[in-house]
Computed example of a mutant assay.
Amino acid sequence: MGGHIEQNENLCQSDAASYLTHREKLPDIVDAIIQGCEQHTCHHHIAFEPIPSKEAVTEIIDRFRAILFPGYFTREKLDPVNLKYSMGQTVSVLYDLLAEQICRSLRHDCFRYGREDLACRDCQGMAHEMALKVLQSVPAIQQVMTKDVAAAYDGDPAAKSYDEIIFSYPGIFAIWVCRIAHRLNELAVPFLPRIMTEHAHSLTGIDIHPGAKIGERFVIDHGTGVVIGETTEIGHNVRIYQGVTLGALSLPKNAGEQLRGKKRHPTIEDDVIIYAGATILGGDTVIGRRSVIGGNVWITESIPPDTKVLTEAPKLIYR
């Protein structure tokens, strides 16, 4: 019995020594990682000014959802008696979170890139002003979202109620996140708009750049695989289906800087329907109002109003 205990102790001591030998190599690994960052061979943010937090942006999205659709996405019961108190708490916390992340974004741009237009200005004061402007936009965005939800219901016989659409439709989620992000983008807030829309993209499979201009009663049906580029312009009462790409033509090598900020994505006019898998490319491409774009078509030139674009029926083989 005693020999067995002694043998176990020897094994434990041997394991501990082996573990220590491996751990002793960690400082050298840490030094190599830090050296790589100091030599600018890795992307890093090692500074006294904090970078925007993706976790905080996710919380901002959750709180925006709670005020855009009151009572739908809160754990607590919301009734006419506690409405003002509950809404006040949510808006107050959201304001502080939003202002902090905007401030971090502005300061990051200033310190990291040395932008002259950001030099010597009150980033914190500006951030609070921008946060107020975004929150002041909420009633208008609510009105637009009411129309988006109604359009989704009107065009989908499978929808049982507006509630079902608000709770469960990925297109509605991606659209309202984009509308908030677009407002931030209009105010020239760095980082946050794209972090927001990419968060929605990760959850829904719908990729909308916050720079895209989108009209009222916009519907994304099903949604997976939808891509809407930065300079896309979409009119009112437009419906698109899964797998639709509103994108840019392939760019020549090193042409990115020359075309940055210029119109590269199509314009979709009012009352257009675009079916699944369609690809529409180019900044000069305009899809005229009331047109219908069939599934799996490839378009790189403008289409007149009241036009149907279809591919030839494929030849099916039965064996």
Rank of each mutant, 00 (worst) to 15 (best):
G3N: 11
I60K: 00
A66P: 00
S18Y: 12
E76K: 15
A278I: 01
V309F: 01
I5N: 10
V226Q: 03
I234L: 02
G283W: 04
F48L: 15
R121H: 11
I172R: 03
Q136N: 14
G211Y: 13
F111E: 08
I317D: 04
V57E: 00
T245R: 01
I5M: 15
I214Q: 04
G211L: 03
R121V: 12
T224E: 13
R75T: 12
G225I: 13
Q101R: 01
V138T: 03
L11C: 03
G235E: 03
K213C: 08
N8Y: 12
L11M: 07
I234N: 00
R264V: 10
A152S: 07
C12I: 15
C110V: 07
R217G: 08
T74W: 14
T285W: 01
D28I: 07
N296S: 13
L187R: 01
S291C: 05
H236R: 09
E59I: 15
L118C: 15
D28E: 14
I293Y: 02
T279I: 07
I208D: 02
R107P: 00
L203P: 09
I317S: 07
I46L: 09
L97D: 04
C178H: 12
L316Q: 14
K25E: 14
I234A: 00
V189W: 00
K308D: 09
V138L: 08
P314E: 11
E116A: 10
G3R: 11
I166W: 04
T41W: 10
K25Y: 05
A150L: 11
F64Q: 00
L184N: 05
I180W: 00
H108M: 10
T232I: 04
V227G: 01
V297E: 04
E301P: 00
I34P: 01
T245D: 03
K77L: 13
P157A: 11
V244G: 02
K253T: 13
H22R: 12
G288R: 01
T90P: 01
D117W: 12
M130Q: 02
I208N: 01
T311M: 14
P170G: 05
I5F: 14
K263S: 07
N10P: 00
L135V: 11
V227L: 10
L259Q: 11
A32G: 06
G2D: 15
L259F: 14
A131Y: 03
M1D: 12
F173D: 02
A119C: 06
V30W: 06
R65W: 03
Q101G: 03
R183M: 13
A158E: 06
R290S: 10
H22F: 12
H222N: 09
R75W: 08
Y169T: 04
F191G: 03
A151Y: 11
E116V: 06
C178F: 05
E198H: 12
S92F: 06
M1L: 12
E198I: 00
